[in-house]
């Protein structure tokens, strides 16, 4: 009872935070609101019986990824704020309509499924269970994802390296 009430509350908070996030002009503000949304999401995850995922949501998503966003934003000295929303009317009305239609269709699809309406007992995945599943059944996936992280690191290094500075000499 409490858990379901909490869920709805947190869901509302997440939606509000996300809404605020996407309508900010200042990217820093947007990132902060998003971090807030992630906090709420982490709690939701815990309520849905995924404590490890909740922890990682905080650590990786809010702690690393969003921080990286902030780093880049501040490094590039973007949008000192004060400028009006750089979305023109011609853009956001069709997008809004489209999104609403999409949402409507999705909602209808979701609702008409009777099996989704039932609710059984709560579920809670212990870390042990999680770890077993991850490294037992999905070991290959773990390896592949680590490769991918390596590639990403190399790629990011290369892209962000910049051009070598020319040393003197006649310009050709």
């Amino acid at each position: 009872m409490l858990a379901s009430a909490l869920f709805y509350l947190l869901a509302a908070a997440t939606v509000a935070a996300t809404l605020l996030c996407i309508t900010r002009t200042n990217p820093v503000h947007a990132v902060i609101y998003l971090v807030h949304a992630f906090f709420d999401l982490a709690l939701i995850f815990y309520l849905l019986g995924a404590p490890l995922v909740a922890a990682w949501e905080m650590i990786i998503y809010a702690g690393a990824i969003m921080v990286l966003f902030l780093f880049i934003i501040m490094m590039l000295e973007l949008a000192p704020g004060g400028k009006p929303l750089e979305v023109d009317r011609q853009r956001w009305i069709p997008v809004l309509l489209l999104s609403l239609v999409t949402l409507g269709c999705t909602v209808v699809l979701i609702i008409q499924d009777p099996s989704a309406a039932a609710s059984g007992a709560a579920y809670h995945a212990s870390p042990r269970e999680f770890g077993t599943a991850l490294f037992d059944r999905y070991a290959l996936g773990v390896q592949v994802v680590s490769f991918q992280l390596l590639f990403a690191a190399v790629g990011a290094y290369y892209v962000g390296k910049g051009e070598p500075r020319r040393r003197g000499g006649p310009s050709s």
Binding site: V95, L98, S99, V101, T102, C105, T106, V108, L109
Partner: peptide, 19 residues
């Protein structure tokens, strides 16, 4: 991206029609 969305919408529409 909008094109993606349109395609997605068409797929949703298809499923709805099937329903």
């Amino acid at each position: 991206l909008a094109a993606f969305l349109w395609g997605f919408l068409i797929m949703l529409g298809w499923f709805l029609l099937a329903l």
